[in-house]
Computed example of a mutant assay.
Amino acid sequence: MVENKENFENILEVKNLAVSFQTFFGEVEAVRDISFNLKKGSKLAIVGESGCGKSVTANSIVQLLPKPPVLYKAGEILFKGEDLLKYSNKQMMDIRGNKISMVFQDPMTSLNPTMKVGKQIVEGVRRHKKISAKEAEKLAIEMLELVAVPQPERRIQQYPHEFSGGMRQRVMIALAMASKPELLIADEPTTALDVTVQAQILDLMKKLNDELGTSIILITHDLGVVADMADEVIVMYAGQILEKGTVEEIFKDPKHPYTRKLLAAVPKINMEKSEVLHSIEGTPPDLYKPPKGCSFYDRCDQAMVICRDQLPELENHYGQHCSRCWLNHPDCPQGGAKVEG
């Protein structure tokens, strides 16, 4: 029995979550035994290549993945101490857009193109709060003003296609924040935006975090965004967590070869013209048949025999810093030794 939910330090706890997709060709193990916590009021970034399981993890939290083909094979998703995986669809409807909201990558496919944006915000608010249409409209104007949409009284009467890409994303954030959720999940919210608008959206999210105390999970592949935005970082690859820690721990002292390669692939302001931007050769493994050893084995230039044959544990180094790599084992030879075949 859960008591005193408000006293929980972690607003979200994901424990040993495993999510698969059932297909005609077999089972795809999209998320494989991941665990992490999110503290109240903190900002967590989940990074990794496309297909690594970031969005599946985010959508699992709010139960947006259809069953079937999705199969939750194991684990718990504890929101304020209660397992969301045990909630019915009706219970989840009370959570989505109310206590937990989500901002998607492409607002044009998330907003209803046939409905004025003001009405969309009003309907979202009135679904969860017992207020009049007039009060909801006033709140919609306030939320658009909060996310810096100019002339909100006029803009609530416009349709999504009358907004620019950056303004549509602001509307999505206003819609997500209208019920003042305790957790905001942003799934690559700035990918389709130019650099200036991207910076404005990130500043807006930080403002919401500071002023409203909203906890944030940011899904992204942009490490520059992570450095500017997050308190803690999770690095995912092939459905697993390979490394996690604070921003300072990850950026100053990365422990996993994959994390180091990701950081090396980020362009630097002071790069010389002669310098070559690093890339990660190869492709991620097929999750129809995940490797029994380290999932990064085929692309790692420091891999050893044990990496191919045995999965390393996610072990703690110091503070919150953990990584899943045999190179960090005390008995590992200096630098490892690449083994072919």
Results as ranks from 00 to 15, higher is better:
6 E>L: 09
11 I>Y: 03
13 E>C: 10
16 N>W: 01
23 T>V: 04
25 F>W: 12
28 V>A: 05
29 E>P: 02
40 K>W: 02
49 E>N: 11
55 S>T: 15
57 T>W: 02
61 I>S: 01
67 K>P: 01
70 V>M: 11
73 K>G: 05
77 I>P: 00
79 F>E: 02
85 L>R: 09
93 M>N: 15
97 G>V: 04
98 N>H: 14
100 I>Q: 01
101 S>I: 04
101 S>G: 11
110 S>D: 08
114 T>E: 06
117 V>M: 01
118 G>C: 09
121 I>E: 00
122 V>Y: 03
123 E>R: 09
133 A>I: 12
134 K>I: 13
140 A>K: 00
141 I>S: 00
143 M>Q: 11
152 P>R: 07
153 E>H: 14
157 Q>D: 12
158 Q>G: 02
172 M>E: 00
176 A>I: 03
182 E>T: 07
192 A>G: 08
192 A>C: 08
194 D>F: 11
195 V>H: 07
198 Q>A: 09
205 M>N: 07
215 S>K: 07
219 I>F: 08
220 T>I: 07
223 L>Y: 05
231 D>I: 08
238 A>T: 07
244 K>T: 09
244 K>F: 07
246 T>D: 08
250 I>C: 08
250 I>D: 00
253 D>V: 13
256 H>M: 06
259 T>K: 04
260 R>G: 01
262 L>H: 08
266 V>G: 03
268 K>P: 01
269 I>D: 03
275 E>R: 12
275 E>Q: 15
276 V>E: 14
277 L>Q: 14
280 I>E: 07
280 I>P: 00
282 G>D: 09
287 L>C: 12
290 P>V: 13
290 P>D: 05
296 F>N: 01
299 R>D: 00
302 Q>W: 05
305 V>Q: 15
310 Q>Y: 12
322 C>Y: 15
330 P>G: 09
332 C>P: 01
333 P>A: 10
336 G>C: 03
339 V>Q: 14
341 G>D: 12
